[in-house]
Structure formats: structure tokens, C-alpha cells
């Protein structure tokens, strides 16, 4: 966990309100793992007191860069989207616990992503396809919101659903998983809570890991802003510190 000023190499709109940003630095690109996140300061920190948590979508240890994909939802991410190549951003990271890959049991793995929950699954999928058969199911609100479809297709068999039916399968990711009707031995999912809940219920007999999104304060486990009920001794987990990736059967959604 360090704070580093990182340089923007690229910051482009890749889909509806969705930006892909590549930043370079010294330490964070070497330390960060799939599923972990960074906490980015907005502006000079005088107007915006809270950092923005963004998961890492891709990691390049040779060029010492990381790729972040973020959705413009408010003032902070809007400011981030206006930054040009060569500008510095203040980054705290790497934070949280990422995906456990050694635990991926069996041969056929299912990856489920929803909207802005898709990015962290990209670097994960890249690693998984080396040793496993992988099927990817991605859900987006609408055609214009889709990103990284071909990037995933190059790695694995990929299905896309849109809520409004403007592209691919008309419906939600769980409909697609039903239709695939395949015996997956393990799964990973990231997306909004209702999607994670639906996937968790559908995959009750299968082990898996879920990556969560929650409004955060400190990002390091001190403020108790991002807690979620869990089946452990304490009765809760902190998404920023114990997560954002958790065992699917650990949390109560």
C-alpha cells in the first residue's frame, strides 16, 4: 500500500459514459494483482475529500502500466475523464484482496460480468485461459454501453446480453447461463449487487468468487463505510479490506 503520482498514458471514451485509462508508475503496477483496486484522488483534494475506488482491468509489468475502466457517474469521475495524456493522478494502492486463482477448481470456469463490473474480469480471464476452459457471459444495459467484447472473444467463448435487447441476447446474464446449460465447475462474477445476488442463487451448487462494489470512505478498512453482512464470526466483512473479492458462499446478499 503506497501513494504514488502516476502518469496518464491514455484516457479515452470506449462506450457510453465509459472511459479506459492507462496510467504508468513505479511500484503499483508491479505490486497489484487481479481483482485488487486503486483509490484515486480527485482534483487537488480540496473540494473532493473522498478518493474513487477503481478496479484494475489489466496489468503490464514490463511497461509498468495498469489499465482502469471507469463509468462517469458524478463530478469526480467527470473530472477524471477530462484529464489528458501526460497529466499526473495521485493513486493509493494496491488495495483489497483480489481473485484467488489457485482455487479455481475443475476445468470449465464461468466468468460473469455486469456493466462496470466487467473490467476486473479481463485480467483474470487472461490468466485463467492458460490452464482452463473458460466461458464468459457479459451483461450491459444497452448496445452503446458495451465494451471489451472482442477483447474477451479473443481469449474465450463470450456471450453478451443487453437489458433492452439492442444487442446480443435480450435479457440478463442469468438467462444466458440457463440457456448454456453447462456443468461449470467454478465461477467468478463481478457487477452490481442485484446481479451478484441472482448469480449466487443460480450457482448454489458451484463454488465461486464474487467481486463487490460499494460506496467507500477510506478504502483501507478503518471507517466501516462499506460493510456487508457475512457468515463469519464477526457477522460482517469490509468490502475494501476483506474484499472486494469474497467467496460466494461467505456473504449474505
Amino acid at each position: 500500500m503506497i501513494i504514488e503520482d502516476m502518469t496518464i498514458q491514455k484516457n479515452e471514451c470506449i462506450a457510453l459514459n465509459t472511459f479506459e485509462m492507462v496510467i504508468s508508475g513505479e511500484e503499483i503496477p508491479l505490486q497489484i494483482q487481479s481483482g485488487q483496486f486503486v483509490h484515486i484522488q480527485i482534483g487537488d483534494g480540496k473540494l473532493n475529500m473522498l478518493r474513487r475506488p477503481i478496479s484494475v482491468a489489466d496489468i503490464n509489468r514490463i511497461s509498468k502500466t495498469i489499465t482502469l475502466i471507469y463509468h462517469v457517474t458524478g463530478d469526480g469521475t467527470k473530472w477524471l475523464s477530462t484529464l489528458t495524456e501526460g497529466t499526473m493522478v495521485n493513486v493509493l494502492g494496491p488495495l483489497g484482496n483480489g481473485f484467488e486463482i489457485k482455487h479455481a477448481e475443475g476445468n470449465h470456469i464461468l466468468i460473469v460480468g455486469g456493466g462496470v463490473g466487467v473490467p476486473p474480469l479481463y485480467h483474470l480471464t487472461k490468466q485463467l485461459v492458460r490452464h482452463h476452459q473458460v466461458t464468459v457471459v457479459l451483461g450491459f444495459a444497452t448496445h452503446e454501453a458495451i465494451f471489451y467484447e472482442s477483447a474477451f472473444q479473443q481469449l474465450a467463448e463470450t456471450y453478451v446480453a443487453t437489458n433492452d435487447g439492442t444487442y446480443g441476447y435480450h435479457g440478463v446474464v442469468t438467462d444466458v447461463i440457463n440457456q448454456l446449460d453447462q456443468p461449470f465447475q467454478y465461477y467468478y462474477a463481478c457487477g452490481p449487487s442485484p446481479m451478484l445476488q441472482a448469480v449466487q442463487r443460480q450457482m448454489t451448487d458451484t463454488h465461486g468468487q464474487l467481486s463487490f462494489e460499494e460506496r467507500m470512505g477510506c478504502g483501507v478498512g478503518a471507517c466501516f463505510a462499506c460493510v456487508c453482512e457475512a457468515k463469519n464470526d464477526k457477522g460482517y466483512v469490509k468490502i475494501c479490506q476483506d474484499g472486494p473479492v469474497l467467496q460466494a458462499n461467505e456473504v449474505i446478499l
Partner: peptide, 18 residues
């Protein structure tokens, strides 16, 4: 105590609510 439901924080101009 388990505390309140989430979201528990929101940013404001030069501040935050918790």
C-alpha cells in the same frame, strides 16, 4: 453493534456525510 444499512457515506463539497 452492526451499524446502519449501506450506503453509509456520501461526498459533499469539501466534505462528506457519514
Amino acid at each position: 453493534r452492526f451499524g446502519n444499512q449501506t450506503p453509509r457515506v456520501a461526498e459533499t463539497s469539501s466534505g462528506m456525510l457519514n
